[in-house]
């Protein structure tokens, strides 16, 4: 099998045929300068739309399996609490940067969203939970927001006289930024909610620390 693999690799054409030339030729129509973002959100927007839907569906399935499990937790150490306070603002800043820079350089909604989720995971590990105020409608709206904005943008284009997800060149950059911003928030929140694993129970007080402090 190794020999077959080596043979196949050696037989590969030096210049792989692909669509990169087509993308490079049409990049001016996309509203962004980064070819990856152009493909992911503009030229091949359907795909990303469906990815968002898959992520949302995964969360709905996890939520439908039951409410958030009771956790027996260790009290977070001082180092974790201190570093969380230091890192979370930094991570939020990085997420915002990745989202913004996605238009011209590597970055974008999924990367920014997962950095945001990393900040969320740090918060979760140091004892923060979706409080009663946030586990209701506002959580649901944010989780659905990415997909909803994407679909609405697509439909608005249809009303505008174009086809679904066909952005007019003049607004394409701004539209992509709005779609990606909503997607970033949704992705970050969905990933954190997936980690928590279960419908957030509304009876927890906002930002409550774990009370049972088991020693390891």
């Amino acid at each position: 099998m190794g020999a077959g693999l080596a043979y196949a690799v050696l037989k590969l054409p030096a210049e792989a045929p692909g669509l990169s030339k087509t993308v490079a030729d049409n990049i001016d129509m996309s509203g962004v300068d980064n070819p990856v973002t152009a493909v992911v959100v503009n030229f091949r927007g359907y795909d990303t739309l469906l990815e968002m839907a898959v992520l949302l569906l995964a969360l709905l399935v996890v939520w439908s399996l039951g409410s958030e499990p009771q956790r027996r937790e260790l009290a977070p150490g001082e180092v974790l609490v201190y570093l969380t306070g230091l890192l979370v603002p930094l991570l939020i800043l990085v997420a915002g940067y990745l989202l913004w820079v996605g238009a011209v350089a590597p970055g974008g909604a999924f990367q920014a969203g997962s950095v945001l989720a990393a900040a969320g995971l740090l918060l979760v590990l140091s004892g923060w939970r979706f409080g009663a105020r946030f586990s209701g409608l506002s959580l649901r709206i944010t989780v659905v927001g990415g997909l909803a904005v994407f679909v609405l943008a697509g439909l608005a284009m249809m009303l505008h006289g174009g086809r679904f997800l066909e952005y007019p060149i003049a607004y394409a950059g701004a539209l992509i930024l709005v779609i990606e911003a909503a997607a970033t928030l949704s992705i970050g929140l969905i990933l954190v909610a997936l980690f928590l694993g279960g419908r957030p129970s509304p009876d927890q007080s906002p930002g409550s620390r774990p009370e049972s402090r088991a020693e390891k």
Binding site: P106, F110, Q111, S114, A118, F195
Partner: peptide, 24 residues
């Protein structure tokens, strides 16, 4: 682009999810 996604999603978030599942 793929590197960023791999580091953040493939290694980071998936790892955290797997650890959570294992703890459970």
């Amino acid at each position: 682009d793929v590197a960023l996604a791999e580091a953040a999603i493939g290694a980071g978030i998936t790892g955290a999810l797997l650890l959570g599942a294992l703890a459970r």
